[in-house]
Amino acid sequence: MDMIVHPALLFLALAIGGVGVALSIPRRRFQASLVGGIIAATGVGLLIVGLGGSALSGDGTLPSPVFHVLAIIALGSCLQVITHRRPVYAALYFILSILATAGLYILLAAEFMAFALVIIYAGAILITYLFVIMLASQSQVEGQEEGLAEYDAVGRGPITATVASFALLAALTVLVFSGLKDIPAPDAARVAAAEMAVLDRLPGKVEKALAREGLIESGEIVVGVEEAQGVATAVVRGIGGGQRRVALPESVSVTNTEGLAFNLLGDYPGTIEIAGVILLMAMLGAVVLARKFAQIDEEAKAAAAAALAEGSTTGGQGHA
């Protein structure tokens, strides 16, 4: 197999990372969180350096320095999520890793998904998690250290879990790094055609852009976008009804949100319906789970209601 990173370097880096992660998992006697974190970061750093070297000698492209900062923040806070003994802090660190991931999405020119991730994950899902952590926190028990529950303070089989997981990571990285060369480069003609198809559905946007550049006069309207002699042109209808073609300037391009919107609503309308059904079923399931609990105490609730009614009537008589 021909890997972009030397196998020895890959496995050494993964082994170092695994030792670091295994060290930082909570244990009965000690938790070497800082030392483990540093060791794991060394492993990841070694692999990133190897990757960077191979990328430079390959096609000469490197991710921007911003990528490295965001990747370190994301992976570091993920390590904190799985090693922190206090669930509230784990959830807060997960929010940090989501913010770093949103940064990675912006680097990947996926602005809409970056904002959706922050709003849905950090804004909605994680806040629900925080609510439940606070709702389901145990009352403080005497004799436990720092008020921590035993199941939060001690991990379960750290060595086995780490070895199994890093074996999976080794398999994944070996597959990815050896098969990367076989991934074809994007077809420029197909990408340009897809962009033109989106612009064809947005005549208003094209018209505004052309009017701003002074390429069409007021009163002329854009009826479509199509290819002519290898360049993208806008079909413009004049006031008299005659049509002419105007070559699209460089400034007219599809934004991420527009492209994603037409892909989502144009190509996958049925999937949206299914997603709606999934959300509805989840909502129904949550309601059913909550109701079942109320039914268990139905008798106690009736007794409490009767007692309350009794109390209010006697209270009312007392006032009178």
């Binding site: 990328a55 096609d59 490197l62 991710p63 990747a71 790094f177 060369k181 991934i183």
Partner: peptide
């Protein structure tokens, strides 16, 4: 580039 893709993966 493929090198950049490898970093993200």
């Amino acid at each position: 580039g493929q090198g950049v893709l490898a970093h993200y993966l």
